[in-house]
Nucleic acid binder design. Sequence first.
DNA 1: TTAGGGTTAG
Length: 538
Amino acid sequence: MAHARHLFDHFPDPKVELWNAISRGYFHNAFYREVVFLFGKMKSMDVRPNCFTFPLVLKSCAKIGAFVEGEEIHCEVIKGGLEGNQFVATTLIDVYSGGRAIGSAYKLFVGMLERNIVAWTSMISGYILCNRVALARRLFDLAPERDVVLWNIMVSGYIEIGDMKAARKLFDTMPYRDTMSWNTMLNGYANNGDVEACEQLFEEMPERNVFSWNGLIGGYAHNGCFFEVLRCFKRMLIDGLVVPNDATLVTVLSACARLGALDLGKWVHVYAATIGFKGSIYVGNALIDMYSKCGLIENAMEVFESMDLKDLITWNSMICGLATHGCGADALTLFHQMKINGEKPDGITFIGVLCSCTHLGLVEEGTSYFNSMVNEYSIAPQIEHYGCMVDLFGRAGLLDRAIEFVKRMPMEADAVIWAALLGACRIYKNIDLAELALQKLIVLEPKNPANYVLLSNIYGDLGRWKDVARLKILMRDTGSKKLPGCSLIEVNDSVVEFYSLDERHSQSKEIYGVLKGLMKLLRSFGYEPNMMELLQGS
DNA sequence: TTAGGGTTAG
């Protein structure tokens, strides 16, 4: 674009065609503001925009959310006598629907002298966008003709409101289906939590492209089936008919992160470079998260530093990765660097920042960050932020300030917050507050046994065994049995699950042998395991 | 030269 612009700037007296050409260049490179800016410049130089100019500028306005400017440009369309142009009018319908001004869109639609299928499609997708699916369907039935694009849009309208039955009924009556029709249905099932239907449809598809594979893989990921994500990715590679793209890799990497599948994650890292996604922000961000979650914070940092282009998510992934990895000081340094680089933090950034302060014990700094989030960045604190603050005070032993904070919150404290308090009560042995916290937790999460276990641990610490026993009975009576936490570790190309006292693995004898050895080694360094926790089965 | 449809990350 720099070369194109250079030529354009040196062209004597460019005509409207040339203005359109340079604007189209900016549009296709996603420089929407520049298109709008050039439009203003063009007018100031008395060049009259034509019917090719307006769709470009209007779409650019819509892209950057400049709906007021879009309306002004509509006036110029009328002044220029171009409202009757099919291309211009259809784009205006899209702009108004995009700005949720569905009434204005419909007025335009009705006022059109001729309405072709594209105009009908724009109007119908406008209604869908504004959640008026029944109205969209009425227009759909009225449309003089329907092509595959229009059918697909109507199907996706039902999917968006979660009506998979209606979507399927329409899909089944389609006179012709292209790959996108199948993919639309597939993604519908995936996003509505129906993994089985998703799998079945995938097998029935006459033709699959990368979106089809991503639909199935994404469906698994969305529904927590991370092993299936990896299995399906391998099948895709073996199948070999379709090459994965950045979206595939991102989904696979996030599954690796969840499972701790480090070897596959590393393999994807190399593979991404070989198929040309080295510069992808999406892939880079997913790699940072994967390495952080798998514990290789240095590798995460390496990816971070190698990225020429960074966005908000890049910074957030790295800051949160450092914070959860115990490198709070580095996380805070990075936060300041982020601001220097001109990236504006959001609510997630502050989660990382506050979490860092908590683990560094920086109570006053954390408080000041919290205030700057509200006052300097106008970010409304979410319940997660209040949770961070309660945790910050709690872990620092300032239980009074923590409970004070809970009382002043503008929303009801949730289970996470009370559990944070309960955790702090355990460290600082505050039995009264602990009992209050548990009371709240029993109401909020009557079925979560972890809460009873926490309080039971506190009683145990204080030697109040009768109370421990009382809680055990209470737990039994509520029928809640604690789901054991499990660890996942990658061994020889597959991921193995381990529970406490687990003996399912074929080599469990050897594994426990190693554990015993490690315990011995720890003891020789003066470490005494806390047998109390073992006894209480936490 | 021009208008309508799909997936991904913290």
